[in-house]
Design a protein around this nucleic acid. Sequence first.
DNA 1: TCTATAGTTAAGTATAAAATGAAGTGTTAA
DNA 2: TTAACACTTCATTTTATACTTAACTATAGA
Lengths: 226, 226
Amino acid sequence: MEKEIGYITSLIGDPVRTNILWTLLDNKAYTATELAISADTSPQNISMHLNKLVKADLLVVESQGRHKYYRFSKPEVAYAIEAIGNLLPTEKHKKIVTNIDNSSIKYCRTCYDHLAGRIGVLITEALLKQKIIVENTNTYSLTKKGNIFFSELDVNIDDLKKHRRIFAKPCLDWSERKHHLAGSLGAALLDKMLLLDYIRRTKKSRAIVITSKGQKHLYEKFKVSV
Amino acid sequence: MEKEIGYITSLIGDPVRTNILWTLLDNKAYTATELAISADTSPQNISMHLNKLVKADLLVVESQGRHKYYRFSKPEVAYAIEAIGNLLPTEKHKKIVTNIDNSSIKYCRTCYDHLAGRIGVLITEALLKQKIIVENTNTYSLTKKGNIFFSELDVNIDDLKKHRRIFAKPCLDWSERKHHLAGSLGAALLDKMLLLDYIRRTKKSRAIVITSKGQKHLYEKFKVSV
DNA sequence: TCTATAGTTAAGTATAAAATGAAGTGTTAA
DNA sequence: TTAACACTTCATTTTATACTTAACTATAGA
C-alpha cells in the first residue's frame, strides 16, 4: 500500500507537476504550451510531465486540432491539492497575505469551480449575515429568503439539488483561512456572476477581475466593497 | 505561491516521508526508530526526514527520556494524506482489495482517530440502517434513538458537541470506496470500542484486531459479522 | 562509572529522475 | 506547398538530494 501511495505522492511532489496541478485548480482546461509557460519550462519537459499525470489518471487530455487540452480527471484531484494547500505554514501564509504584488490573485480567485479568496469569503459572510444561507455542521442550507434570492438570480435550485454533488458546503480558504461557499450552489453563483459580467476570468491565472458593473452590484447586494 | 505549495508537495513526495506520514495516520505517536523500521531505512536517514517534516510544521515531536515521539501537528495533515489516498487508480485499488495477504489492514484499520476500512463502513451502514444517525449533505446527525444509543455506551454527546471539531461527518474510505463515520463522534466510538476490548490495536500497523467479545457484540448490536 | 540504547550531525557519494538537444509527426493557415 | 506551430520521442547530460559512513551527544540501567 505504501508503494501505491508513494507513487501518487512522488507524482504530486515534483515542482513542475505541482505547478501544473495548482494551475489547473480553477477547473479550466489548459494546453500543454500554456502549462509550460506557467511552469517556466520547455515543451518537451511539460510533455513528459503531463504524460505521467495522465497515465496516473490525475489528468485527462482532449485533442482539439493541434492543441491538447489538459484538465483534472475527477474532483478528488482538486480536493487533494486544496487539502495540501491547507498545510501551508501559518507564518509563511501571513507573508503571502500581506504581499501586495500578487494582490489580484489573492483577493479574487476561483477554487476548483467556485469563487474563493477574499471576495469568496466576503460574499459568503454576506450571504450568512443576510440569512440567505445558514450554516449547519459542515453544510450550508438555503432559507426561504435564500430561495427567493437565487430564483431572482435565475438559478434553478431544484435542478442543482438533483445532482449527486454536495449542494452547498463551506470550503476552507488557504489565503483567507476562512470559509467560502462551495458545492453546486457555489459553482452556480460563480457561473451567474460571470454571465452577468460582474467578474471576468483572466487568461493566464486563477485571478478574477471585477468589472465596474460588478463592483456596483456587489455593494448593492452584499455591502461588499472591493 | 506555487513555490510554497511546491515546498509542501516535495516534502510529501519522498517515499520515506510518505511512509512516515502513512504510518502516523492512525494518530499514534511513534519513535524515530519505529518509523525507521517501518520505512526500512537507517536511523540517520529517518532523523533527517523527520527534521524536515517538523520544520515544515507537518509533525510535532515530544521528548520522553531518550525517546522522541513524532505525531501529526494538526488534523489537516491527516486529511491531506487521506485525500491523496483517494487518488489511487481504481484498477490498482482492485488488486489490493483482492489481495489476501494484507487482509487484516484491509478489513479493519483506523483513519486518523476513527474506525475505517471494511469494519468502519459496515458499522456506519448499520448505524444508518438502524436510524441511530441520519445523513445530511456531508454531515451525519444523531436521532433521538441515537442519543439513547450513545448515552448507553457512556459517550457524552454534549461534551463532544462543545468542541470546535466537526461532530460527525462521512469520510470517504480509500479501500472500500464508501463512507465511514468520522469527526468527534467517530473518534469517541473508536475509543469506546477499544476501552470495551471489542477491538485492539496492533503494534506495528494501522490494523485493528477484533476480539471474540467484540465479534459477539458487533453482531448483536449491528448484525455485522466479521 | 561503564555499557547499551536512542538519536543527531556533518561530509562525501551515488543515483534516479528532470532537463536538454536533436529529430521527428501531425495540423493549420498563408 | 510551404512555413509556422503544437506537441512528441529518444538519447544524452545535468543536478538535486537521499543515503552512507563515521564520529558525536544524551539518557537509562546495571
